[in-house]
């Protein structure tokens, strides 16, 4: 592999990792934007999304991938709603720490539940490995192409929904001020439910793409969530384009960094960036609006 394509492949690898982070970060930032708390159980939506697909592709359903995706994402959306209904709605007005702890507890519960149903072992959807297609000296598989394309589609779709639709407008109003939004006659319940469904479906899509690209594992969500969280912070909490850019930035920085320093410090790169951003923009964790 000559040296130009060596670096180009690294950049491509960074973009792939970044797209996955961005898909996770978008869902995270959406819930943060509307409900003003970090959903640490988001990683489990990612993982359950992937396992739901596994469920519908395995016996007794045995559906092909393209069909199975629909019920899998629908169930992931329902899981998001169920999370809100059972845990977060009763404590909607509790302080942020309570919400955070509740989310962490829920995360453990859902992870253990997945382990209970499917076991702790690593699984795959059972597709044959296919060598990537060579294109200008770069290798790209169908799944990887799908990762990039789906991420772009999701960003545009969520952007349109958030900024061009009535529902999006009410969600944004909600995130500015819950009480004011309610007094103005906005159906807050409906907006919150919509935010959960979108966030969960984004997580499900990301989880399925990640599992198609690698494997299924009960800890696959949590392993990537912290990076998604960093991406959210870098991009500015509640900012969709920021989530995309933050994800790509971390993905690229990590992968390019690997070429020059020991890959043992790969995670360090993401967190150094995150800490620097937090130092420069401390209001992000203080919970004030970033815009």
């Amino acid at each position: 592999m000559d040296s130009i394509s060596y670096y180009l492949q690294t950049i491509l690898n960074g973009i792939l990792a970044g797209c996955i982070y961005a898909l996770f970060a978008m869902g995270l930032t959406l819930i943060y934007g509307v409900l003003n708390f970090v959903n640490f159980a988001h990683g489990e939506l990612i993982m359950w999304g992937a396992y739901f697909l596994f469920l519908f592709m395995a016996e007794p359903f045995g559906l092909p991938l393209y069909v199975a995706i629909i019920p899998a994402l629908a169930l992931t959306g329902c899981l998001g709603l169920a999370m809100d209904y059972s845990v977060f709605r009763p404590i909607r007005r509790a302080n942020r720490l309570t919400l955070l702890i509740a989310a962490m507890g829920l995360s453990v519960l859902l992870r253990n539940a997945a382990q209970f149903f499917w076991g702790a072992e690593v699984r795959t959807y059972g597709f044959e490995v296919i060598a990537g297609t060579q294109f200008l000296g770069l290798y790209l598989t169908t799944t990887q192409f799908a990762i990039i394309a789906v991420t772009l589609i999701c960003v545009v779709a969520v952007y349109l929904l958030f900024f061009k639709s009535r529902l999006g407008k009410s969600m944004r109003a909600l995130s500015d001020n819950l009480d004011l939004a309610r007094i103005s006659g906005i159906d807050t319940k409906r907006s919150i439910l919509a935010a959960w469904v979108i966030s969960a479906v984004l997580a499900g899509i990301g989880g399925i793409l990640l599992a198609l690209d690698t494997n299924l594992h009960p800890e696959m969500g949590i392993a990537n969530l912290i990076k998604a969280f960093a991406a959210t912070l870098i991009g500015g909490v509640g900012n969709l384009w920021g989530a995309l850019l933050g994800g790509l930035l971390i993905g690229l920085a990590e992968n390019i960094g690997v070429l020059f320093i020991s890959p043992g410090y790969k995670d360090g790169i993401a967190f150094v960036i995150m800490v620097l951003i937090l130092l420069a923009r401390p209001y992000v964790i203080l919970g004030e609006r970033s815009d």
Partner: peptide, 8 residues
Amino acid sequence: TDYRTELL
């Protein structure tokens, strides 16, 4: 989940 650049 991603070891691509290490492998590269």
